[in-house]
Amino acid sequence: MTLRLSKDVLSQIHLHGEQAYPEEGAGFLLGADEAERVVQAIFPLSNSREDAARHNRYLITPQDYLKAEMEADRLNLSLIGVFHSHPDHPNRPSEFDREWAQPFFSYIITSVQSGKAVESRSWRLIEDRSQFVEEKIHITSPVSP
C-alpha cells in the first residue's frame, strides 16, 4: 500500500499541525483511489473537541464532514482519508485512534514537536479493526516557490 502526495500537500498538512499546536489539528484528504491512492488536496478543519481535550483528541463534526463531502464532489474527487497531528508525541496511532478509525480511510499522523512538524506517517485500519498497518508515503513533486 502506498499513498502518493506532493510536497506541497504535505507542507499544507504540516502547516495545519503547527498552527493548531499545542492542540491537535485535523482535516480530510481529498483525492482518487483507483490503481493507486493519490492525495490531490486537503480540507483543513477546526478541532471541534471541547477545550480541555484538544491537546490529545480531535473531532470533526457531521456538518464539517458534509462540507468536505460536498467540496470533494465539487472537485470531482473523493474523501480518501483523514490527517491529524500529535503534539509532542510520536506519529503512531493511539488506541483511541484505532477505536474510532474506519477501514478504507488513510490516516496521516504528523508528529509536531515544540510547535514544529517533524514527520508524517500514514496508516490504514485492517478490515477486522484489530490494528493499523503502515502505508508508505510517496512524495511526488517539489515544493512550489
Binding site: 458534509l66 463531502e69 485512534d97 478509525a101 474506519q102
Partner: peptide, 10 residues
C-alpha cells in the same frame, strides 16, 4: 438522504 460516520481520534 446522506449517511456520514462521525470522525474522531486522538
Amino acid at each position: 438522504i446522506m449517511l456520514l460516520a462521525s470522525i474522531s481520534g486522538g
